[in-house]
């Protein structure tokens, strides 16, 4: 692509990342959450494919993306299991004054970021997972026309042999 597109793509890294992170982190206060935020972040990868082409796309380490995907999902599962003291998926962090555990004062307010317990943490996990998974989908469709998702070649690129 032309230098204009390339430069604009680089400049757009900041606003797109910020918007994506905003949507993920404010998932428990405003519309959005992990899935839309992760999809917004993954659109950055697609934008870079368009701007910089195949040579750039080949440099992406799919192993890291697979790791991010699995890590996000495992984190989500782990958070669900951590509530087992009372019940599965129990929100044990809410109102605990620790991580995201602020008690909300009674009455109308504009929303507190430091609240929600495990919901924002789960949003972050889902955001990571969706970002990594959609990036993998984009890489596979862009580089390999979707042929090798389930064949043997793919292991040479990413994971362990």
């Amino acid at each position: 692509m032309s230098p204009i597109v390339k430069n604009v793509a680089v400049v757009l890294v900041i606003p797109i990342t910020m918007f994506g992170l905003y949507i993920i982190l404010h998932g428990h206060l405003t519309p959005g959450g992990g899935f839309p935020g992760g999809a917004i972040m993954a659109s950055l990868v697609v934008l870079f494919f368009v701007a910089f082409g195949k040579e750039w796309a080949k440099k992406i380490n799919k192993g890291i993306l697979f790791f991010g995907e699995s890590f996000g999902l495992a984190l989500f599962g782990l958070l669900a299991f951590l509530g087992l003291g009372t019940s599965f998926f129990h929100n044990f962090l809410a109102n605990s004054d620790s991580l995201f555990g602020m008690s909300i004062p009674f009455g109308a307010n504009s929303g507190f970021l430091w609240s929600g317990g495990i919901i924002p943490l789960m949003n972050i996990a889902v955001g990571l997972e969706v970002f990594a998974a959609l990036s993998i989908i984009a890489v596979v469709m862009f580089l390999e026309n979707g042929k090798v998702m389930f064949s043997e070649k793919e292991n040479n690129v990413g994971g362990k042999k």
């Binding site: 697979f66 790791f67 995907e69 699995s70 999902l73 495992a74 989500f76 599962g77 782990l78 669900a80 299991f81 599965f88 994971g159």
Partner: peptide, 12 residues
Amino acid sequence: GIPLFAAFAVFF
């Protein structure tokens, strides 16, 4: 929950 978590952690 166990098979679900196990599915996510198979990668590791």
